[in-house]
Simulated assay, not measured.
Amino acid sequence: MATIFYARVSTTDQTVEHQRTQAEAAGFKIDRIVSDHGVSGISTRLAERPEGKRLFDILRSGDTLVVRWIDRLGRNYSDVCDAIREFMRRGVVIRTVINGLTFDGATKDPMQQAVRDALIAFMAATAQANAEAVKEAQRGGIALARAKEKETKYRGRKPSYTRAQFNATVALLEQGTGISAISSATTLSRQSIYRIRDQRAAAEASLASWGL
Results as ranks from 00 to 15, higher is better:
Ala26Ser: 10
Ala26Tyr: 10
Ala26Ile: 06
Ala26Leu: 15
Ala26Trp: 10
Gly27Leu: 08
Gly27Tyr: 08
Phe28His: 11
Phe28Thr: 05
Lys29Arg: 15
Lys29Val: 02
Ile30Gly: 15
Ile30Pro: 08
Ile30Tyr: 11
Asp31Thr: 03
Asp31Ile: 04
Asp31Val: 06
Arg32Lys: 09
Arg32His: 12
Arg32Ala: 05
Arg32Ser: 09
Ile33Pro: 06
Val34Met: 00
Val34Arg: 01
His37Phe: 14
Gly38Leu: 00
Gly38Met: 03
Val39Pro: 01
Val39Lys: 02
Val39Asn: 04
Ser40Val: 05
Ser40Pro: 09
Gly41Gln: 09
Gly41Tyr: 05
Ile42Met: 02
Ile42Ser: 01
Ile42Leu: 02
Ser43Trp: 01
Thr44Gly: 10
Thr44Lys: 15
Thr44Tyr: 14
Arg45Thr: 08
Arg45His: 15
Ala47Lys: 12
Ala47Asp: 07
Ala47Tyr: 04
Ala47Pro: 03
Glu48Leu: 13
Glu48Asn: 14
Glu48Gly: 09
Arg49Tyr: 12
Arg49Ile: 05
Arg49Val: 11
Arg49Thr: 12
Arg49Asn: 08
Pro50Asp: 04
Pro50Trp: 03
Pro50Val: 01
Glu51Trp: 08
Glu51Thr: 12
Glu51Asn: 15
Gly52Pro: 06
Lys53His: 10
Arg54Thr: 12
Arg54Glu: 13
Leu55Asn: 11
Phe56Ala: 05
Phe56Ser: 07
Phe56Gln: 00
Phe56Asn: 03
Asp57Phe: 04
Asp57Glu: 07
Ile58Phe: 07
Ile58Val: 15
Leu59Gly: 03
Arg60Val: 03
Arg60Phe: 09
Arg60Ser: 07
Arg60Pro: 00
Arg60Met: 08
Ser61Thr: 08
Ser61Glu: 12
Gly62Val: 01
Asp63Asn: 05
Asp63Phe: 00
Asp63Trp: 02
Thr64Leu: 01
Thr64Glu: 00
Leu65Cys: 04
Val66Met: 13
Val66Leu: 05
Val66His: 15
Val67Lys: 09
Val67Met: 14
Arg68His: 10
Arg68Ala: 03
Trp69Glu: 14
Trp69Gln: 10
Trp69Gly: 04
Ile70Val: 13
Ile70Pro: 12
Ile70Trp: 08
